[in-house]
């Protein structure tokens, strides 16, 4: 982990994915869910960013917005821009979007059981993407779909089978094969391993890293599993209530944690050295996303919070070129969280 983190310095080239001030709300009949609030994410070629946070923190909405696939209604992208290879996905015609999706940016969805169309063969589903984005015949596309299947470790003879004939792990591989079919420059992986059991999880992760190295794809890896993040990510962004509250290289966030919430996440992991130690979960629940406070949304659960936290509008604070945190407590130069004491 240490080595990996050390290698994580930012290259000064143009990012392949550049999300700026993105805000996504879901407008329901009687209330508005503020799912994503003014977040910005940059990602360079060939890098993996871990997007971490609890369920409902807005991770999936962020990824969907990056494809301009927020279901509308009820979803509304209030503001912001999402540039993929320099082109803004949010200000594109439907036709342009259709060209870019699957070719430059694609997504691996969370639930492999429901993400495949049950009435088409897996081969057809992979080949469809290839046919749409490259100039080739149907049989060439099927041939390449077979290659993709082999790439994710499924014998190509199974291309003619339907999703229900595959196990969960196999389906997830198919979903990955679909996403990678046209070697996209950006891949959004939404908890690609959560639905899988642990042994297959490891296989899929290894495969994804191998693929990244082979295709030089930039990846946003959405998860709430910090172990997975440590294993494969170069950078980390921690989301809470629709905001990125801490971001930096793997080393920044894991070894120089600044935000009390991130600290809470680490504390709630079971301690492998002391198996009898009680878990220390973060008390309380995420705030109701329909009624977020003006200030820090984590304040009600935060052990360091002062009454001012809830009122103060939070701004980003940079600790190094790569490491930023959103916590007003650092206005007091003497403030530090307990994790930093050791």
């Amino acid at each position: 982990m240490q080595d990996k983190a050390a290698s994580g310095t930012l290259a000064p080239e143009e990012p392949v994915l550049d999300i700026q001030h993105l805000t996504v709300h879901y407008v329901l009949e009687e209330e508005t869910v503020e799912a994503v609030n003014d977040i910005s994410i940059r990602l360079e070629k060939g890098r993996i960013l871990g997007l971490v946070g609890e369920t409902g923190a807005g991770k999936t909405s962020t990824a969907l917005a990056a494809l301009n696939l927020i279901p509308d209604p009820p979803g509304v992208i209030r503001s912001g821009s999402v540039k993929v290879c320099g082109r803004d996905m949010l200000r594109m015609s439907q036709q342009e979007l259709e060209q870019i999706r699957g070719r430059d940016v694609s997504m691996i969805f969370q639930d492999p059981m429901t993400s495949l169309n049950p009435v088409f063969t897996v081969g057809e589903q992979i080949a469809e993407s290839i046919r749409l984005h490259t100039d080739c015949t149907a049989s060439e596309a099927m041939e390449r779909a077979g290659d993709m299947l082999e790439l994710v470790g499924i014998p190509r003879e199974r291309a003619g089978e339907y999703p229900h004939q595959f196990s969960g792990g196999m389906k997830q591989r198919v979903v990955i094969a679909i996403a990678l079919a046209c070697s996209p420059k950006v891949l959004l992986a939404d908890e690609p391993t959560t639905a899988l059991d642990v042994t297959i999880q490891a296989q899929v992760l290894d495969m994804m890293i191998a693929l990244k190295e082979k295709l030089d794809t930039a990846m946003i890896f959405i998860t709430h599993d910090l172990g997975v993040v440590a294993e494969i990510c170069d950078e980390v962004a921690v989301m809470y209530a629709g905001r990125v509250i801490e971001r930096g290289t793997l080393d920044d966030v894991f070894n120089h944690t600044k935000h009390p919430y991130t600290e809470g996440l680490f504390n709630s992991l079971p301690d492998i050295q002391d198996r009898t130690a009680a878990l220390r979960p973060i008390p309380g629940l995420m705030p109701d996303p329909t009624r977020l406070p003006k200030g820090c949304a984590f304040a009600p659960r935060c052990p360091y919070a002062s009454p001012a936290c809830i009122e103060t509008v939070q701004t980003e604070r940079a600790f190094s070129e790569t490491h930023t945190v959103m916590c007003s407590a650092y206005e007091d130069p003497a403030f530090h969280i307990r994790r930093e004491e050791v």
């Binding site: 494809l67 696939l69 279901p71 439907q94 036709q95 979007l97 259709e98 060209q99 870019i100 999706r101 699957g102 070719r103 694609s106 997504m107 969805f109 639930d111 429901t114 993400s115 495949l116 169309n117 049950p118 088409f120 589903q125 469809e128 993407s129 749409l132 984005h133 979903v175 679909i178 996403a179 079919a181």
Partner: peptide, 22 residues
């Protein structure tokens, strides 16, 4: 609103084809 239609859209399948085929 099923997930597999979202998958199809994410592949860049034109909306008409999403509805008529998928």
């Amino acid at each position: 609103r099923s997930d597999y239609l979202r998958t199809a859209r994410a592949k860049g399948v034109p909306e008409k084809t999403v509805i008529r085929k998928h």
